[in-house]
Design a protein around this nucleic acid. Structure first.
Length: 404
DNA sequence: TAAGCGTGGCT
DNA sequence: TAGCCAAGCTT
């Protein structure tokens, strides 16, 4: 990939030879042209200039006033980038402010128990981000004296830093001419330079990164990267882009050719798989039993009403038996408390609430990292998925703890 | 490498 | 309504 980028950078220095093929074979003599057309772009220096300046100027006039744009603290910027992965700005703002108040420095974050970190992430989703953030903070303390390294290359060695996040932090927090490509940038560049190919296509990705690499060179790389993203988020939107307000319309190949609506092609998404969990609602003395899930997989490391995967149509008694097995404890089925449905991107989740009791109350179990008996107030402070929070609300709303 | 991983906003 | 999508990373 670095080859494709430098290939492009080198070629763009020569206006009359600026067509770039990003196929890996493009650098070697090709025996035969492949059946599929090579993905090519023609970023002449003139074209790059026609994009860079106007976009930066547009950004200066139109950028949103976002809280992480008011700080120069690399840690705070890093945090914003991690939270913003696959998550919308309006969702992130309150989380970012709360999390930063609770864990104001990389050292504070590194020193905190993972449980507290997950609690601070509660409801934000993609919880492995929080676990990786925590691990990375500990590495920053151990390897870099508590200060985030300043280059994309070094950042890339930390957990949770992929190519995007490394480029974002390096350019925004440290001013490195490091490129980035996120969903917004991919869309913007696809249109501006008529980049073909489906999302995930390797050649397409190489082309986009090569373009981003060429474009970011110059003054204020961090602002330019943000300008690309901001433009994609507010103007060059997926649906109904605001081309009449676009500052780089004149440089947009897709606009000139009337192809804005067809670039980039939509991502093909798999239909969500059904997942049914039986949940143990086990009241005792004003508390309920909670369990902490394994660190990997769905809702990794989070607390829940003890759950066991079951077939959707499994009879209640057998579902209760599964819970008994997971808890390593005898369980008596007392009744059912309904179901809660949640739609995740990749899962169609059904939570079946089973009210249970037992003579022996377990304090540890084979299927869980940890068990804990918590009052509702104590449970509110646990790291828990929104799905599980809904199930808990339903259980409490049914009055299981009343007169218990 | 493709699949797994959450949530809420928007149309 | 139901589907699409968002400042992606990991294994």
């Amino acid at each position: 990939m670095a080859e494709a980028a430098s290939d492009l950078a080198a070629r763009t220095a020569h206006p009359r030879n600026s067509t770039v093929a990003n196929a890996p074979a493009a650098r070697a003599p090709r025996a035969k042209r492949s059946a599929a057309p090579a993905i090519t772009v023609s970023p002449t220096p003139k074209h790059l200039t026609a994009v860079r300046g106007p976009l930066l100027g547009w950004y200066d006039r139109n950028k949103r006033d976002l809280p992480w744009r008011r700080t120069r603290d690399p840690y705070a910027i890093w945090l914003s980038e991690v939270m913003l992965q696959q998550t919308q700005v309006s969702t992130v703002i309150p989380y970012w402010e709360r999390f930063l108040a609770r864990f104001p420095t990389a050292l504070a974050l590194a020193s905190a128990p993972l449980d507290d970190v997950l609690a601070g992430w509660k409801g934000l989703g993609y919880y492995s981000r929080a676990r990786n953030l925590h691990r990375a903070a500990q590495e920053v303390v151990a390897r870099f004296g508590g200060r985030l390294p300043s280059t994309a290359e070094e950042l890339l060695t930390l957990p949770g830093f992929g190519r995007y996040t490394a480029g974002a932090v390096a350019s925004i927090a440290f001013g490195e001419e490091a490129p980035l490509v996120d969903g917004n940038v991919a869309r913007v560049l696809s249109r501006l330079f008529e980049v073909e190919g489906l999302p995930g296509d390797k050649e397409r990705e190489a082309t986009l990164w090569a373009l981003a690499t060429a474009l970011v060179k110059g003054e204020r790389p961090g602002d330019f990267n943000q300008a690309l993203m901001e433009h994609g988020a507010t103007t060059c939107r997926p649906e109904s882009p605001l081309c009449l307000l676009c500052p780089v319309r004149g440089a947009c190949v897709a606009f000139r050719k009337g192809r804005v609506d067809e670039l980039p092609p939509a991502k093909v998404r798999a239909t969500p798989k059904k997942l049914t969990l039986a949940l143990a609602v086990w009241p005792h003395a004003g508390t309920l039993l909670f369990a902490r899930r394994a660190d990997s997989g769905l809702f990794g490391g989070l607390w829940e009403l003890p759950a066991a995967e079951v077939d959707a149509d499994l009879p209640e008694a057998e579902a209760a038996a599964r819970l008994a097995s997971a808890l390593g404890s005898e369980v008596k089925l007392e009744g059912t408390l309904g179901t809660v449905k949640r739609q995740l991107t990749h899962r169609d989740l059904t939570l079946r609430l089973l009210r249970v009791s037992g003579a022996q109350r377990p304090t540890r179990a084979p299927a869980f990292q940890e068990l804990r008996w918590c009052t509702p107030a104590e449970a509110a402070a646990l790291g828990m998925s929104t799905a599980m929070q809904r199930a808990l609300d339903a259980a409490l709303g049914s009055g299981v703890l009343n007169g218990d």
